[in-house]
Design a binder for these strands. Structure first.
Length: 303
RNA sequence: CGCGGGGUAGAGCAGUCCGGUAGCUUGCCAGGCUCAUAACCUGGAGGUCGUGAGGUUCAAAUCCCACCCCCGCAA
């Protein structure tokens, strides 16, 4: 089958690889290279880099609505387009161009977590499971008919980082299955619709006046990006991993309860920080962190 | 030329401004002490101070030059 692939970040790369293995990928669409990172150098998207290594023609239009972009797309005469975290809205003209239309790989169990940040929002909300939905695209935001679903478990150890990789892998498997089996499209239920708002950097600041469980979920959801953090002695400390623990302490919120980073949170709940990072330093275990950073029992990090 | 921090013992850091015997915490090894603790005490091993048969100097982790690598911010 002649497939056009549309995707941009690391998440979509395994999907592209999987498609290349099983089908004829005739073109790849991705976001144009933008200045990024230190030095603001122009960095091609991960998908573009991978596509070029395969020698597949890459298209990087700024928009599909304007100019001749949609005509170019139609001229490819594809059987189907597979879209995964592309980052551009597909106009009707594009959606209808391939013989079998456009199908999307979405990182949630629709209709829950439609939108931009389904992986992070599922963890943040404390969901016990999430997954991948393969769907036929229509003009709405993740509203198309569903073709296939795959469930992935969320455990207390799951971070956005590990879940990202697991879902990416799952997506790469399911898309092949969907293309082979050609399942019957099913309408999305009207019940249970939620939206996964884009992550704002300002959300990453840790408010210790919340339940430990909620803070923990945020920490896991924001690992690795944008990384939940607090400010202590004027320095930003990022927290990448934490464990909720029981405590009988009535210490004020933000107080360090022992010599190993157990922090008092709201209503007598407590959170042990287990992986952190100082400015300019690498991510490290709490053990290593404490060897060079004094944060003793009795201090308060919420002030 | 976007802004900035860093590379020193296995690990995490101080020392660099103001050049003069390589330090701290932890880990490791040996021994001691204790009803007991991540307890405490004593001794010990472990370092080309990122690289350069670079520059300056009587003397460089420290000052100068070049390069490599890691990271934070912004985007």
């Amino acid at each position: 089958m002649k497939v056009v692939f549309m995707g941009t970040p690391e998440f979509s790369v395994p999907v592209l690889e999987s498609l290349v293995k099983h089908h004829e990928v005739i073109a790849v669409y991705t976001q144009p290279a933008r200045p990024a990172g230190r030095g603001n150098k122009l960095i091609p998207s991960p998908v573009q880099q991978k596509a070029e290594s395969f020698g597949i023609p890459v298209f990087t239009p700024i928009s599909l609505r304007k100019g001749t972009a949609s005509d170019e797309f139609a001229a490819l005469n594809a059987d189907i387009a597979v879209v995964c975290a592309y980052g551009l809205i597909l106009p009707k003209k594009v959606l209808e161009a391939p013989k079998k239309g456009c199908i999307n790989i979405h990182a949630s169990l629709l209709p829950r977590w439609r939108g931009a940040a389904p992986i992070q929002r599922a963890i943040e909300a404390g969901d016990k499971e999430t997954g991948i939905t393969i769907m036929q695209m229509d003009e709405g935001l993740d509203t198309g008919d569903m073709l296939l679903k795959g469930i992935v478990e969320i455990t207390p150890e799951t971070t956005a980082s590990t879940l990202h990789d697991a879902l990416s892998q799952k997506g790469a498997e399911l898309i092949i299955q969907a293309l082979e089996e050609n399942p019957t499209p099913q309408k999305q239920p009207e019940e249970g619709v939620t939206y996964a708002e884009k992550i704002q950097k300002s959300e990453a600041y840790i408010d210790w006046f919340m339940d430990a469980e909620k803070i923990k979920n945020k920490i896991m959801a924001f690992n690795p990006y944008p990384a939940a953090h607090f400010i202590y002695r004027g320095e930003r400390i990022k927290v990448f991993n934490a464990v909720v623990e029981k405590t009988t302490s009535k210490a004020p919120v933000g107080e360090v309860l022992d010599s190993n980073l157990l922090i008092a949170c709201r209503g007598g709940t407590a959170l042990r920080l287990t992986e952190l990072q100082r400015e300019g330093k690498k991510k490290m275990s709490a053990e290593d962190f404490l060897k060079g950073f004094e944060l003793k029992k009795g201090k308060n990090i919420a002030v």
